[in-house]
Simulated scan of single mutants.
Amino acid sequence: MKRMLPVLAFLILALPGAACADWSLVRGSGPLASFESSARPAVAVKTSRDFATVAQGKMTVMLHDERSLYGTENGTVWYCLSARDHGDSQLAVALADANGRGWYPSNVGSQFENARILYSCGSDRPGTADQRVFVRPVQLDPWMDAFRAHGAGWNASVLVSQYEWLDSAGGTKLLVEYREPLAAELCPVIEEADLKAFILRANTAFSARFSEGIPSDSITPYAWDSEGVSARLLSDVLGATTGNTGS
């Protein structure tokens, strides 16, 4: 399914070409949203009102590079997990810094590089947004143990609408995942009408507002805490770095 939606929820405002160098770099919760970054990119990711934050933090992840299948370089990830009040959907926001390296676009080196993509929309070029819908087995999901620890998880496979944005230099990756449980099947069959309805729910579950700068003193930084998030599986989700400078 390749039809373009009229508007991606991910693109509420125009994506900036570069971050404003005058702003200090702080990532955490703020007055605009539970996930805010003051620069690189300056963005606030806000969930719809029926979602509540269940976990948030900052963690180190060993990243793959183009020369190795194993995590060989440290990266830093800021994340925020939210769940809908009635427990049937989740949102995961992650901002990953490759610490001086670049990211391969799209799913190169990620756990779903060879997965069946049910829907795609947008572009994987730096400075643009890309949306993909796919099924992730729950045992490969980096977030689920953290959700379960707060009573908001499940054991079924995960139907994911993933939004990815790379900054113009390619060194910072923002991921947003809207997620719902799916009956565990080796080859699940999803009717086109059900897929369209899922995409609509995903596109209206959050907004991402990019700006020229968000005051750093208005953001409460996330603490170092993995909250049960699997660093190994998260590295697989993020994909490969290029080894080139991403700044």
Rank of each mutant, 00 (worst) to 15 (best):
71 G>C: 06
30 G>K: 01
231 A>W: 02
205 A>N: 07
31 P>K: 00
12 I>L: 15
98 A>Y: 01
157 S>A: 15
30 G>S: 13
101 R>A: 07
217 D>Q: 10
68 S>D: 11
116 R>F: 10
110 S>Y: 04
34 S>Q: 12
48 S>D: 12
218 S>F: 12
153 G>N: 02
56 Q>I: 06
220 T>P: 08
123 S>A: 14
50 D>N: 10
184 A>D: 08
99 N>Q: 14
232 R>M: 10
123 S>N: 14
171 G>C: 03
52 A>K: 11
55 A>F: 03
91 L>Q: 04
128 T>S: 12
223 A>K: 11
233 L>D: 07
148 R>A: 01
113 E>H: 15
111 Q>M: 12
45 V>D: 04
123 S>F: 13
224 W>M: 14
21 A>M: 11
152 A>L: 01
30 G>M: 08
133 V>S: 01
37 S>F: 05
67 R>Y: 07
92 A>T: 04
238 L>C: 12
175 L>G: 04
131 Q>G: 12
227 E>H: 12
76 T>M: 05
163 Y>S: 06
109 G>L: 03
235 S>K: 04
215 P>A: 15
57 G>N: 05
165 W>N: 10
44 A>S: 15
27 R>M: 06
12 I>W: 14
97 D>C: 02
179 R>H: 09
239 G>R: 06
73 E>A: 12
211 S>I: 09
224 W>R: 13
134 F>G: 06
244 N>F: 14
120 S>W: 15
30 G>V: 10
106 S>G: 11
141 D>Y: 05
172 T>F: 14
136 R>P: 12
160 V>F: 03
157 S>E: 13
142 P>E: 07
58 K>H: 05
15 L>I: 13
102 G>H: 05
3 R>F: 14
154 W>V: 00
157 S>Q: 08
87 G>M: 00
155 N>K: 11
87 G>R: 01
215 P>F: 15
34 S>W: 10
168 S>E: 15
155 N>D: 13
92 A>H: 02
77 V>R: 00
173 K>C: 02
65 D>Y: 08
20 C>T: 09
177 E>M: 02
75 G>V: 04
100 G>I: 04
39 A>F: 09
75 G>F: 03
132 R>M: 03
160 V>Q: 07
49 R>E: 15
201 R>T: 02
92 A>Y: 03
59 M>D: 02
33 A>D: 04
170 G>S: 06
14 A>G: 11
115 A>Y: 04
163 Y>C: 12
159 L>M: 03
158 V>L: 09
77 V>G: 00
223 A>V: 09
23 W>Y: 15
185 E>H: 06
159 L>R: 00
221 P>Q: 04
178 Y>D: 00
118 L>E: 06
109 G>M: 05
204 T>V: 14
87 G>W: 00
126 P>W: 01
238 L>I: 14
